[in-house]
Design a protein around this nucleic acid. Structure first.
Lengths: 210, 210
DNA sequence: GTCTATATAAAGATAGAC
DNA sequence: GTCTATCTTTATATAGAC
């Protein structure tokens, strides 16, 4: 696999550091290829450790994957809970969660890819196990409140929540397809991310507000 | 792999029929697992032929994949060209292509999955090779015309085209994640598909129209 | 055109030395 | 805690019989 000829491996024998380094490499690999196609060998290589280390720390590939999901998603999801959306007016709440989601995914597109792979390859099995789905509920609750207050149009809250999340995530997941179409090749460049954000937010808010 | 104990294989030795049967099985397998994780063995099994047949007809896995993409997408894309969107008023054109896309994907969700996998795993390489991307252009052209006529809001046409396609496709690709959240488990049941369609169309049209 | 082997390579996982 | 073998399974691909 043409591993980078990096510095001679200085074993630092720091348990937590090695574990975290493996998880970071793993999240890149799983995001690129999905659970099935990800290779423990590749994860080891980009961590500069041997494959045996993966098994020493995580037992097997499946458990590594589960720990990787927790590693990636738990903190961002806490940041959303902190927003206390249920106690904010619908429009403000919607803008808050959209901003948070956009910032979160822009900073770590890996999250989108892994979410998508989870649905496509794994039937959402591990996603369900780790319990990461509350943010769909958060959004549909906001929509329902907006409808009840008469400030949002009467759209199906659950489906619309999915459509909104889709508008935020699809751009990232399909970036590699789209780039062949556009002159601007780097869809993750700052100005492109900003244009994506503006376009998505306008479509959603215009679509919802009466 | 616990292949189904099906009828004794009656070799019909019909070249075109076998080829088509393989392509159909292949599209299911590639849609489920993506190019990398799809197994020629599994495709052969569900076609009721041996693996050797795959190689006899298609040479190798990569070529089978390319032929499968053509097999799936070429006809639906022709159906979109027939619509002659460039010569229809923007609102009508938009509704036409949305309807066509929804019908197309609902009938063959495989298309969404393979599109998504193409971007995630293959960097859109094969998608580009087969040249399947004109419908993003079709939509952004419609939006641009609507803006010029003063009937659509001033949204970035390219990004908005992506968002619109996303609204149509994301639902299918993330169905396996979402189903864990909803009481209604079958997201591909007719009434659910209809609700998805209505919600998506309303959000898009409300979002675009002035 | 279809099948039954079989060659070859890759990837998950483990044993045992240091 | 980390590494070097090594075992085992699985998957792409081919050879050769019918």
């Amino acid at each position: 696999m043409n591993e980078k000829e990096s510095d001679p491996i200085v074993s630092c024998r720091d348990k937590d550091a090695t574990r975290t380094k493996i998880l970071n490499s793993a999240s890149e690999e799983f995001a690129k290829f999905g659970y099935i196609s990800a290779k423990t060998e590749a994860i080891a290589a980009s961590t500069n450790v041997t494959k045996a280390m993966i098994y020493y720390y995580f037992g097997n590939k499946e458990n590594l994957y589960i720990e990787t999901i927790k590693h990636i998603f738990l903190e961002p999801l806490k940041n959303i809970e902190i927003l206390d959306l249920d106690n904010k007016p619908p429009i403000e709440a919607l803008e808050l969660i959209l901003n948070q989601m956009h910032a979160m995914i822009s900073c770590k597109p890996t999250m989108s890819y892994i979410m998508m792979y989870e649905a496509l390859q794994n039937g959402g099995k591990y996603y369900k196990q780790v319990g990461l789905f509350n943010f769909y509920h958060l959004i549909s609750n906001i929509i329902q409140r907006g409808i009840d207050l008469g400030i949002f149009k009467d759209l199906d809250p659950k489906h619309t929540a999915v459509n909104i999340v889709g508008t935020c995530i699809y751009y990232f997941c399909s970036a590699e397809n789209i780039k062949h179409l556009w002159d601007d090749n780097d869809l993750l460049a700052p100005d492109m991310l900003d244009r994506h954000k503006q376009s998505a937010f306008k479509l959603i808010l215009n679509g919802l507000l009466i």
